[in-house]
């Protein structure tokens, strides 16, 4: 077992039928759980309720988000204007930022730079992409939307941090053609 994380929070909520007992597992129980998971050959196990989240994994990598490239720290806002519903299609607009071509989000959702927290980012600054290169995922309602570069060039900017909400039409990447 390479990692076992445990998280508690202060919520008062209790599931239906769940007695309001002490929320945490003690170390013996955790060891017992780890043993069970191991015996049954799982490489990953996650359990969560209102009070506790336990994740047990055998992978040796660190469970952490994909490397986050510091980009524009402020949330996206159209400068000086309320973001109106864009009339045009989600077609990426060029020349907004130093002549860069921008890949924009086709939907409202959550931006992910990697297929899963343990995997490397699809692309990083300096990478060369072709039109069919997958650059990120935008999730909405458990639909993972794969976003392609749609043009060839070099990724020079990543505008959004991993796991942040994005709006329709919001620039995600800047590409130098």
């Amino acid at each position: 077992m390479a990692s076992a994380t445990q998280k508690e929070d202060n919520d008062k909520g209790t599931a239906k039928g769940t007695p309001a007992t002490e929320p945490s597992l003690n170390m013996d129980e955790l060891r017992e759980l780890a043993k069970l998971v191991d015996e049954h050959g799982f490489t990953d196990f996650e359990f969560e309720n209102e009070k506790i989240r336990v994740r047990l994994g055998k992978s040796t990598v660190i469970h952490h988000a994909a490397p986050v490239v510091p980009a524009h720290p402020a949330p996206y806002e159209a400068p000086g204007a309320q973001p109106a519903a864009p009339a045009a299609d989600a077609a990426p607009e060029a020349d907004e930022d130093d002549g860069l071509h921008q890949i924009t989000s086709p939907i409202v959702g959550t931006f992910y730079r990697a297929p899963s927290p343990e995997k490397p980012a699809y692309v990083k600054e300096g990478d060369t992409v072709s039109p069919d290169t997958v650059v990120c995922i935008v999730e909405a309602m458990k639909l993972m939307n794969e976003i392609q570069a749609e043009i060839s060039g070099e990724i020079v900017k990543v505008y959004v941090e991993n796991a942040q909400p994005v709006e329709f039409g919001q620039p995600l990447f800047g590409i130098k053609k």
């Binding site: 919520d11 008062k12 209790t14 209102e50 959550t110 999730e139």
Partner: peptide
């Protein structure tokens, strides 16, 4: 909310 983990409270 477009995406996230929902937990029922109470």
């Amino acid at each position: 909310v477009q995406a996230g983990d929902v937990t029922a409270l109470r």
